[in-house]
Design a protein around this nucleic acid. Structure first.
Lengths: 215, 215
DNA sequence: GCCATACGTTATGTATACATTGAGTGCAGG
DNA sequence: CCTGCACTCAATGTATACATAACGTATGGC
């Protein structure tokens, strides 16, 4: 589809995920219309979809970029943990049963290495993107479109909040990612699920600790 | 909110969940406009939200009520299993830590009994509604709004497909529901998660067996 | 000097007109 | 009788005009 409404949705979503807007920023329909050069109808549609995604929130008068409280973050990471454990389990099962192509596994391994590499280079933005890629690829490998969609939603929400905590987690991520990759490539569903759950749990703990130590 | 768009969304969603439309039925904007007595703008908005919920699907020209293939159903139940296991775990943890009111637990127990009772009475429609209530209450008890939302979406999707398989599961449901209720009321997170996961797994197996035996 | 109220501005909610695209149909030719 | 093409019609995509509600502001009374 290449209609205006779809275009507006994609562009706004991309901007939000890229962190171009900050949580709490107010978005007005007319402002966006002017910005994107289209009328209110498709813009409204895009905003409603973003609202349904939880990326923006209604305020009675217009929408604002969603901000996640510490509690929201905990809820999101709880959900993420369960979803990624399932994704890892399904991916490992698929690998075990020979339903994953070698090319897919290679790409996944490469994604894991890429996160590590960007982290080592001290590239915060690149690390975040690579991390996102890694987790999206995991979601994809699960072979479950609903699960993939749910994980995309969660990660989109993560993306609009501060990324400052990412850099400190690099070393930990590398170990966890490697464990997930290994368990999946070996076709071990239980180990994969555990590794994914551990990863999410650790990330959640590290996040709250970083918050406590003053953002 | 009591605007037209919200009203249209709620009414259409209710109809879909009540099974008033059948999977594959075509919905036209103008038809709904006439039906609900409003203009296309709020109707369009409602349809887009339903599309985002996965209850209707775009066909290039208009939307149709979503139909779930056997594979879709498997994906949905996989996801449901993981989500309900988490919900049960969180609910049991909350109960263990004294964050659940006695009134909530009583309501939840009553919901479980109500499913059993409707099932014993041979009331297929009532059993389905009671079952939905039970699972929605479980989602609520988790205390995680994101999780609750995700489960609402899943169950809404279940609701638009045939319910003929529900009646045969009554006895099994009763046992599983009782196990979930008990584990939560005792504040045992692991047992609750296992019971919920088992329930989903069993339901999924029963469903495919019913399909195989000719709907 | 401060608070309350009334007004103007602005943004959203809704309706409708116009443009566009795709599907169904009927007719003609083979 | 079947097939292919063109045409009609209907439904969606988009723009815009109008209605309405909320926010900020200014003014007047206390």
């Amino acid at each position: 589809m290449h209609n205006q409404a779809e275009l507006a949705y994609r562009r706004l979503r991309e901007r939000l995920i890229a962190g171009r807007y900050n949580p709490g920023d107010r978005l007005t329909e007319l402002g966006i219309c002017e910005d994107l050069g289209m009328s209110r109808t498709p813009v409204r549609e895009a905003l409603r979809r973003l609202q349904s995604d939880g990326l923006v929130a209604s305020t009675g008068r217009g929408v604002v970029v969603s901000s996640l409280s510490e509690e929201d973050m905990r809820h999101a990471t709880d959900l993420q943990g369960a979803l990624e454990a399932l994704a890892a389990r399904l991916a490992a099962t698929a690998q075990r049963d020979g339903h994953l192509s070698p090319a897919q596994m290679r790409q996944f391994e490469a994604a894991g290495r890429h996160v590590e590499e960007r982290g080592a280079a001290g590239d915060v933005e690149g690390t975040w993107k690579a991390n996102l890629d890694f987790h999206m690829m995991l979601a994809r490998l699960s072979g479950n479109p609903l699960l993939e969609d749910a994980l995309e939603r969660i990660w989109a929400r993560f993306s609009i909040v501060s990324r400052s905590n990412i850099s400190r987690r690099t070393r930990l991520n590398a170990v966890h990612h490697a464990m997930i990759v290994r368990a999946i490539s070996e076709g071990d569903p239980e180990a994969a699920a555990c590794a994914a759950a551990d990863h999410a749990r650790e990330a959640s703990i590290t996040y709250s600790r970083n918050l406590a130590s003053g953002d």
